[in-house]
Design a protein around this nucleic acid. Sequence first.
DNA 1: GCAGATTATGTCAGTCACTGACATCTGGCA
DNA 2: TGCCAGATGTCAGTGACTGACATAATCTGC
Lengths: 228, 228
Amino acid sequence: MAAQRSPLATAPAARPDDGAGPGLRERKKQQTRDALIEAAHRLFFSQGFAGTTVDEIAAAVDVSQRTFFRYFANKDEVALAVMADAEDYFIDRLRARPAEENPLEALRAAIVESWRELGSRHTGPGSVTSALELMRMIEDTPTLLAAHLRRVTEQERVVVQVLAAREGLDPAEDLRPAVMAAVFGSVLRAAHLSWSAECEESGPEDMISLITRHFDQLGPALAGDWRH
Amino acid sequence: MAAQRSPLATAPAARPDDGAGPGLRERKKQQTRDALIEAAHRLFFSQGFAGTTVDEIAAAVDVSQRTFFRYFANKDEVALAVMADAEDYFIDRLRARPAEENPLEALRAAIVESWRELGSRHTGPGSVTSALELMRMIEDTPTLLAAHLRRVTEQERVVVQVLAAREGLDPAEDLRPAVMAAVFGSVLRAAHLSWSAECEESGPEDMISLITRHFDQLGPALAGDWRH
DNA sequence: GCAGATTATGTCAGTCACTGACATCTGGCA
DNA sequence: TGCCAGATGTCAGTGACTGACATAATCTGC
């Protein structure tokens, strides 16, 4: 049973069962996984992360604790699952950006696209309002923050690969992709911190404009085209 | 009993007890702490991090498990204690750099100074050879890597504060200190990865030259003086 | 539909990290 | 010397996580 991530936008639940779709087994597994994530978020948000036991989450979905751990390696993972999905989606968007764009343009466009897609979900743990709560929870739960930063760092390495491939550079010899990814990461993290520090509930457009404003501050110094 | 870090260079053990020194109680606590770190590293390096229990570490120093947890909040912390000390030392060095230097020069000089100081220790868990082993262990122990990255991110925020203070900027308004810290962080991390990827044992000079080479790649584009 | 191979799940027992409460012991100090 | 604060030990408990094995559900070829 390999861990399977949902795409950012869950497949429509009401799709009639045509022959070509995934089998019943697959669908049930996906359901269980989604239910676990949803129950976990609900409990985390009402009782706090530390105040929620894995047994409670499992009980809420009516599976055994052992089954929970077959879906998620640890308690952190179920909390960060939607972040992981979103990050994967971002990487997809980045890969899809036209080659003419310079790295910074591509990164900016990909992250804006991702947040816009996220904004189109209005219910469930993947919705924008949950994203805000989730980020607050991550910030003040040390173990979650640590796990999240590990994920982010991992993703940054992927970004380096993608940027290097776009520009035809060897990331082992040329530091510019790594530097660009680091700068991008710091911009994102700064925007995240600003966003979760605000007291008011705010929508995806607020987040997008926050990111955009941070990007604009970078100035043209870093936006140069690397190709000769 | 607040957690007390040793300075990077431990005070000479043979210093005769003059009246002004810390009391016996303080000294014993420091001894216990050092002994715990040393035993932990020895066990981690021979049996692996996951293969070593806290009880073993405590038993090796002949204290109770409960006492271990009064010195270190968790198993990660004892593994990363020397890193934490080194990072604190680096921040001190950075604060001490002359104001005329531009940010990049100051960062580079401070990190080189730190590694040189580290290189002067030849025994114990703070020595350079241990540093290499330690970094390898961190890289392939997910929980350790996560905790380490959390520490690093925290330190990066301190670096941002220091840089902003040096240049008389408000880090909330001007992103340049944050960007510079991120770039610095990526350079360091790249150097660390290269270093721990090498098969041969290597000394502090190798690490310093590795860092220097990475720095040189950054080019003068980022080294500009921010003051008018 | 059915037998048999796959695969998901439940149960159970166990290990280990970590914590609160309380008793005890030791160094600091009048 | 004798009191006090702070360090340590003991103990019991919780909760995350794992391996082993039995059971139940799906899938596959017929």
